[in-house]
């Protein structure tokens, strides 16, 4: 199986094809390159642990809100089974992990969506964790950084999932009122109900290169369209050129760029100032 399809359990000496350009990459080289293809530059999807390793200070991440458990309020067909399978496969409890970490010494609040868990979809638990992560930033006066990787709202929780869009938006309002910076990082993919709520109203929005980003599924958009659809439609580059993104940042530069933003925008916050020593 190529890299980017199943990410774990690859022996260090192994070599596999890139799922984008099909060229053969050595596992060790792939890992050293932060899972970016050395030939085509494709940014392969990360698990939440890999994201923590790429961005935050080593050993600084502390997971919070670990006791939140999803319900099946609608008794939706096959939801309980699908959810249980996802838990078993990913060792996660839902699609989002939240907590505190430090970024080049600065304390931050964070939440990370993991696409490997039911497509990173946002139900009650994901919505609650993202809300708490943003609120924690607001209350503690530390920057909030949210990593998006989601197909959208989780339909198996029905209208409750739609309401997570408003709930997370309320948290952003609280963060703004508190004067605390909130940064959204779009990764592949950032779609639909997630894009149309907390993700799009961050103080700063950055994205990894070539991430898929859009409101409607590409199929729906193209069906609705009579004229030609641009080649780069619903990519990070498309959004950047239309003014919907602030910056595209390669994975290897994400850590330093995010740190600069936190230091510059959060310089008035006691917790950030203390780290300038």
């Amino acid at each position: 199986m190529p890299f980017g399809k199943a990410s774990s359990g690859v022996a260090p000496g192994a070599f596999l094809p890139c799922s984008n350009c099909r060229k053969t990459i050595f596992a060790a080289e792939f890992e050293a390159n932060l899972r970016v293809c050395p030939y085509c530059g494709h940014h392969h999807r990360l698990t939440w642990q890999q994201r923590v390793d790429v961005v935050f200070d080593e050993g600084s991440f502390v997971e919070l809100d670990t006791d939140l458990r999803s319900g099946d309020p609608l008794h939706f067909p096959d939801y309980a089974e699908k959810h249980a399978q996802a838990m078993q496969r990913t060792k996660m409890r839902d699609s989002v992990v939240s907590g505190r970490a430090t970024l080049m010494g600065m304390p931050v609040s964070t939440a990370i969506s993991d696409f490997h868990f039911m497509g990173g979809s946002m139900g009650s638990v994901a919505g609650e964790k993202i809300t708490r992560a943003i609120e924690r930033g607001a209350h503690e006066g530390i920057p909030a950084i949210i990593f998006c990787a989601s197909g959208g709202a989780r339909m198996q929780e029905g209208l409750l999932s739609l309401m997570q869009m408003a709930k997370t938006t309320a948290a952003v309002e609280a963060c703004r009122s508190a004067g605390v910076p909130y940064i959204a990082v779009f990764t592949d993919p950032t779609m639909a109900g997630v894009l149309a709520s907390y993700a799009s109203i961050a103080d700063v929005i950055v994205s990894e290169p070539r991430a898929l980003i859009g409101f409607a599924g590409a199929r729906v958009s193209k069906q609705a369209q009579v004229s030609k659809v641009p080649d780069d439609f619903q990519t990070a580059e498309f959004l950047l050129s239309h003014g919907m993104l602030d910056k595209i940042i390669e994975r290897k530069n994400l850590r330093t760029n995010l740190a600069s933003l936190c230091r510059l925008l959060g310089g008035h916050l006691a917790a950030v100032e203390a780290t300038r020593g």
Binding site: L68, R69, G71, S124, V125, E128, L160, M163, K167
Partner: peptide
């Protein structure tokens, strides 16, 4: 909206 969600 803050209280909306079904979780344990």
């Amino acid at each position: 909206f803050r209280r909306m969600g079904a979780y344990a």
